[in-house]
Amino acid sequence: MISEGLRTAFELLVSFDWEIYQIILLSLVISLSATLAAGVPGVLFGILVSIGRFKGKRLVKVLLFTSMGVPPVVMGLIVLLLAIGPLRPLDLVFTRTAMFFAQFLLVLPIIAGSIVISSEKTQVRVLETATTLGARRKHKVGLLVRETKPFIFMSLILAFSRAIAEVGAVMLVGGNIKGETRVMTTFIAMNTSMGQFGTSIAMGIILLFVAFLIHLALSRFRRDFYG
């Protein structure tokens, strides 16, 4: 089955079937844009939680870490209910925008949470050192972001991996409509339910191959991280 999948994957790619390329492209565009869009507020929130000294910090962290584990299908359901309820006038149901929105919300806590987990100690140390050396507030912020950079990169990689691999949210809010909202994971789920296991494996291989290419490209200019 696996070797048949490899062959089918190759056939799918060289068949130059526009539909297949469209599915791959849509997956990439939605997951990349959701990750990058969630990056800014996610990183800022993560840094704020890390260096903040406030009442209820422990509770905030517990809630943040909990929401890192929200099942995609639950997030999809929330977005769907919003789309058919209060946001009805926006016509979001079964659209690419809704898919972006669901993935954005899904990866937001993952970015913020992983920033806290990985770099809280570093950030606190940087802040203390900067304060001791008498740095101004503006410089402190710049310094923090610079020192957190490798961790930001890692959190974005985590978030993108989660987004590109999830099927529950995009299936629910996108609806897997052919030529409109079908992405790699919903394509795989659909073919599996149709008993076309070979095609499913093939698209799975393509998904991994695409992720491989992305990392290969990133490793060129992030030698510190991949070195």
Binding site: L80, I84, V93, F94, M171, G175, N176, I177, K178, G179, E180, R182, T186, F187, M190, S193, M194
Partner: peptide, 18 residues
């Protein structure tokens, strides 16, 4: 004409929603 590629329940729900 929209192809959902999903089961009867999901497809009927999609029709119901829209």
């Amino acid at each position: 004409y929209k192809e959902t590629g999903q089961g009867m329940g999901s497809t009927m729900n999609m029709a119901s929603t829209t």
